Structures are given as C-alpha cells and as structure tokens.
Simulated assay, not measured.
Amino acid sequence: MNRATAVFGGTFDPVHYGHLRAAAEVSEKLDVDDFRLLPAGQPPHRDLTGAEAYHRLAMLELALAPYPDLTVDEREVRREGPSYMVETLHSIRRESADAPVILCLGQDAANQLAGWHRWRELFELAHLVVMKRPRSRPRYPDAVARELAPRRARSTAALMNEPAGRVRNLEVTQLAISSTDIRNRLAAGRDPRFLLPATVLAYIRKHGLYDARGG
C-alpha cells in the first residue's frame, strides 16, 4: 500500500471534466491510494465565488460519487476564515505523520505561488506536483524559481522516499474547459452539457446556480 496522501485543491466553481480528468491522470501516475479533491471554503485570492461553499462541496461529491479512488476532503469548507493552503497542509501533516503528502496544482496556480500565504512553508509540509497541460508555461518569479530549482525530483517514485520538500512536473491532457466559461454560458441561458457531469448540471439547475435568475 502506498501511504502517500495527494491533495488537489481548487474552488471547483463548478467542478468540470477538466478537473476530473487531471485528477484521474495524476492519481494514476502517482499511484497513491489516497487522492483527495479539496474545495476551498473562502478562497483568499477571490472576493466572491459564483456558488456558496456548501454548493461547491455538494457538486464535487456528486461528480466523484462513481469513482471510489477519488475522494472529497471537506476541511476547508468546514473551517472558518480564509482557506489558506498552508494551514490545510499543517492539518493533513498532523494526520499523516511522516508519510508523504503531495500538493497537486495547475501551472497557472504554481505561477502565482509567491502570492500564497506563507508559501515557503509549503515545502516543509508537502511535495509539489505541478500539473502541466501541453500549452501551459512556467512563469515563476525569481524567488519562486530559486526555491524550486534544487527541489526537482527526477522521478515520481522519488516523492515516496521523503515526507515533503520535492517538486515534480506531470503532464496532463489539455481539455479546453473552464469554470468561468461554464458560468458565463449558464448566465447567458446557454447549455453547458458535456462540459461537466450530468449530475452536477442537474444540481446547478435545481438550485438556480450561476444563471441570471438564480444568482
């Protein structure tokens, strides 16, 4: 059994097939038994989300219901205050003891790492896996580039030999789907089917999320 815990955080506003395909591919490449998608409760870098945290959590649970190898971690939704990843990783580290913890994030998020709360502390708590799509490009500030360079892992297996502190890039399939586009389609009365799970779309329609009438 692989003792590592992998976490893929995001607003998932709403969750769509781009998120799910990336999670499936990275989970398979890491070969971890515990792969979690973690919705942000109060994202510190966004003034508002399109849907309340409990709706985003419910949609993610619906999306993952058919896939027992992918689970939802609710801790940021349940925790009060801004959802700082460093605090989340401290919580997960306490539960994981000395087992590897892996934070999975997209290249765009990694490019913004210098703006994260106590970002250097992340490397004491977890490995970083950057999910790279074919057209994504690293644009790291100098401080981040200097921090990442000596931490590069030559193989995915190397992440399993230490609890934290290494960095690895993993390629994922490019799916031109975005939550922003889905929200815009819904607000305009257009149909976003086949961009996200049918169960999620049914939930959105039931609760009047994102459209001009439902808010």
Rank of each mutant, 00 (worst) to 15 (best):
L89Q: 07
L105R: 05
D31L: 08
R146T: 12
P44A: 06
G165R: 01
R79Y: 04
H16W: 10
M1R: 12
H90S: 13
A188G: 07
K206R: 14
A145V: 06
V77N: 01
P44D: 09
R56K: 04
V129P: 01
Y54A: 11
L105F: 04
P43D: 10
A110I: 06
R3S: 13
P134R: 04
C104K: 02
E76K: 04
S27L: 10
A143T: 13
A4Y: 01
P82L: 07
L37R: 02
R139A: 14
V200Q: 06
A110N: 06
V15S: 08
H16K: 09
P141F: 10
I182Q: 03
R75S: 13
E52M: 05
P68I: 02
S91P: 03
A212S: 13
F194Q: 13
L57N: 00
P197M: 07
D191S: 09
D142T: 13
M59A: 06
E28I: 01
W116D: 08
S178T: 13
P14D: 02
P100F: 01
L201Q: 12
A143Y: 00
R56A: 01
L60A: 03
I102T: 00
P134L: 05
R168H: 08
D98H: 04
Y84Q: 07
G165W: 00
S179L: 07
R190K: 15
G41V: 03
P163E: 00
Y54W: 11
S91R: 13
P134Q: 00
A202R: 15
L103H: 03
V144F: 06
P197L: 08
D211G: 11
L37A: 06
R137A: 14
R146K: 14
D34Q: 12
R46N: 11
R146N: 09
L70A: 09
P197V: 04
P150Y: 05
A158I: 01
S178I: 11
P68V: 01
R21H: 12
M85S: 15
S179R: 04
P39V: 01
A4P: 01
F35G: 00
H207W: 08
L122C: 05
A23F: 04
V167C: 09
E171L: 09
M1W: 08
L37S: 03
Y203S: 04
W119F: 07
E121H: 11
P197I: 04
D69P: 00
D69Q: 12
M160D: 09
D13R: 02
P150G: 03
E121M: 05
V200I: 08
Q42S: 14
L70C: 10
V86R: 04
Q174D: 15
H55E: 03
M59V: 02
R135S: 15
V101P: 01
K206E: 15
P150W: 01
L89Y: 05
P192D: 08
I182V: 10
K29P: 00
H55I: 03
R183S: 01
L125H: 02
W116R: 08
T88D: 06
I102D: 00
D73W: 04
A198C: 09
M131P: 07
E162T: 12
D108E: 15
A99S: 14
A6M: 07
V7P: 00
A58Q: 06
A40T: 12
Y140S: 07
A53M: 00
R46L: 13
I177R: 08
R139H: 14
